[in-house]
Simulated assay, not measured.
Amino acid sequence: MPTLAPADLAQSLTDRAETVRSAWLDAAAHELRGRTTRGELEREQSDIFDALVDGLRAGATTVGAEAFDQLRGILSDVSAARARLGFTPRETAVGVFALKEGLYALADGSGGSGGSTDLLPLLRLVDELGLFTFETFAAAREAIISEQAEQLLELSTPVVKLWEGIVAVPLVGTLDSARTQVVMEKLLNSLVETGSTQAIIDITGVPAVDTQVAQHLLKTVVAARLMGAECTISGIRPQIAQTIVALGIEFGDIRTRATLADALVDALREGRRSPAGVLA
């Protein structure tokens, strides 16, 4: 028996819509095991089914066809929603792959093996749609992870106003290029917003200081100075001091102090000396 044309496949799906959708819904609900409600699944599948039929009627046979633009959009929205809700890739893709159960039911009712052969293009299309859903889910998950990483980076790099004209950046963890950029941006913005002239970069929570970390600190200090603020690096523990000396790292004329308290005392003292100082 010759392979059915897309329009004929669409007609077959429409004629047996209830059978196909019922088997599809049962298979998806069984796989998801209560991860989403049956009513929600039914609404999603209704939208997918209608868009699939419309694309087939327009002659589309591959997932990238223009006639399937709406279908791809629906699948992208479903994939992104599932990614945000913490679904696994399998749980997301199975919602599409389960459509095959409905197609098998359609084939069984259309004449045995001949009907099955006629539906091969549709089965291949479902495979393509499932892979598209998987890829879209993966991209959405990557975007969410990246966004969460940026948010964590922001939260782990606060700028604290200690006194009028004095701000501090308490650093915890490793200082790399990406985090240095965040530190620099937040510090410079804070200097502008608060009108501060003294900044303290506290590295008490930084586990180790090597040449790269030192370079990042120096860049931040230089950027703050360009904004008219003087910086003090505090939290120089004995181990950190020994490492800095062993590596031959030079901080030049940048003030360094053992503790945040010592740095704050220095900043207050500098404020008294300044004509527009913090205590003047």
Rank of each mutant, 00 (worst) to 15 (best):
A178G: 09
P6T: 05
G252C: 05
I236S: 02
T157V: 14
E193Q: 12
E193L: 08
N189I: 09
D210Y: 08
T211F: 02
S156C: 07
L175H: 03
L4K: 01
L260V: 12
L25S: 09
I201T: 01
I203K: 05
A80E: 13
T36H: 02
H30R: 13
P2S: 11
G64E: 15
T220C: 05
T211V: 07
A5W: 08
R269H: 14
A199E: 00
V167R: 00
L122I: 14
S116G: 09
A143N: 14
A208Y: 08
A199G: 12
E185F: 01
L119M: 04
D176N: 06
G112Y: 01
E135M: 05
F134T: 15
I240N: 03
V167H: 00
S76Y: 00
E135R: 06
T232Q: 00
E230I: 08
Q212A: 13
I249H: 00
V192S: 14
D176I: 14
V182N: 00
V169K: 05
A140R: 01
N189G: 15
D69K: 12
R38T: 15
L264W: 00
L217N: 01
V78S: 13
R33C: 12
S234L: 09
A143M: 10
A60V: 14
G86F: 13
T117I: 14
G173W: 00
I144Q: 13
K219S: 08
T14C: 07
D26G: 02
F68D: 07
A223T: 00
R57F: 10
P275D: 06
G112I: 09
A267W: 00
G112L: 06
L187H: 04
G252E: 07
D108L: 13
S156Q: 10
Q70F: 04
S46Q: 13
L52V: 09
P158T: 07
D26S: 14
A65W: 04
G277H: 02
S177C: 08
L162Q: 02
I144C: 10
E164I: 03
R16A: 15
R38N: 10
A138C: 11
R179E: 08
A178N: 06
E42V: 06
A98G: 11
S190V: 03
L103A: 08
